[in-house]
Computed example of a mutant assay.
Amino acid sequence: MKRRRYVTDVKRLDGKTVLITGGNSGVGKETAVALATRGARIIVACRDPEKARRAVTEIRLQSRSLNVCHMDLDLANLSSVRGFCKDFLQKEKRLDILINCAGMPSVLDWTDDGFSMCFGVNHLGHFLLTNLLLPRLKESAPSRVITLTCSSYKYQKLDFQDLNYNLLPFFTYCRSKLANIYFSQELARLTEGKGVSSFAVHPGFVQSGWTSHYSFLFRMLMQVVMWMFFVSTEIGAQTVVYCAVSDEAAKHNGGYFVDCRPAVLRPFARDEGVAKKLWEASERLVKLA
């Protein structure tokens, strides 16, 4: 197995505010611990208040920082996203780092707004969230947006006749991860010169709780596979932390990162025309004025 890098940058984040979707578990939680340890104010955005409260307690204990809190957010409901952003902008005067970490695996399910769960949560929910919080990111510049994706993007291209769904749930997931990459690139172009940097991160294949959406037999099988071949959540969080703190990463605005360094995308995933078309289509789908 390829040896993965650990972040060696010791930069502090005192006075910085970090918002992490899905920060209650997996890579998001490990990232929260790492950044809280560096002095950042951490806001965990999660749809389950009880899970979020438990996670906040654990993050505080592990990081030895009390500057960690949670806010309710359901990315599968665009009204919830709008309400969250309104509340956030009223309460929080800074947003230095936004980490779009929450995600759904390849399940056949639907959001409250009628989108496939994969595409609705992984792309559209984060698309609306980032756009509504963009004014605060610009005010807090230099700021960063880090969006988690996956190397499985390479197995699909976008179908603008039906962005939302594919008959095979795994391919819907692949499309959503490709959409994350295009989103990150277009965000970098649209905010160029405005102090907001954007990065897409593949954390590796991580031993996390994504199998909870599947049957007991599948979960047991995947536990064995993950134990043999997947990396820990601590290692998975390293590239996210790297993009949050590294001055070197800031030189690659709009870049795709793997193992704490820029990585090369397939040519079709670097198509500026497709990225722009997806951005405009996403604006229509979420009714972003």
Rank of each mutant, 00 (worst) to 15 (best):
E139C: 03
H252C: 07
R64S: 12
L108S: 12
L167V: 14
K11R: 13
T21H: 10
R261H: 05
V274T: 11
L19C: 09
S232A: 05
E50N: 03
D109G: 04
V274E: 14
Q207E: 14
F88P: 15
R53Q: 13
C101D: 11
R189S: 00
L129F: 04
N253V: 07
Q156R: 10
M228R: 14
E92T: 03
D162S: 10
D259I: 11
F170K: 07
S140M: 05
L278H: 06
R270F: 02
L124M: 03
Q156K: 08
K93S: 11
F205W: 15
G193T: 10
D72Q: 13
A32D: 06
T172G: 02
N180A: 01
L95Q: 12
Q238K: 09
A200N: 06
T239P: 07
W210S: 00
E280V: 04
R261I: 04
A34G: 08
K177M: 04
V224A: 09
G28D: 00
A52W: 00
S116T: 07
L168C: 06
V264W: 11
R284N: 09
A289P: 13
G39E: 08
S140T: 06
L158A: 04
C174S: 13
Q238P: 11
G273E: 14
V206L: 02
V224H: 09
E248F: 05
R94I: 02
T31G: 02
K86Y: 13
T57E: 14
C85A: 10
L19Q: 08
L98A: 01
S246E: 14
P105G: 08
Q62A: 13
N24P: 00
F115Q: 04
F216A: 03
Y153F: 05
D247P: 15
M1V: 07
L132A: 01
V56R: 00
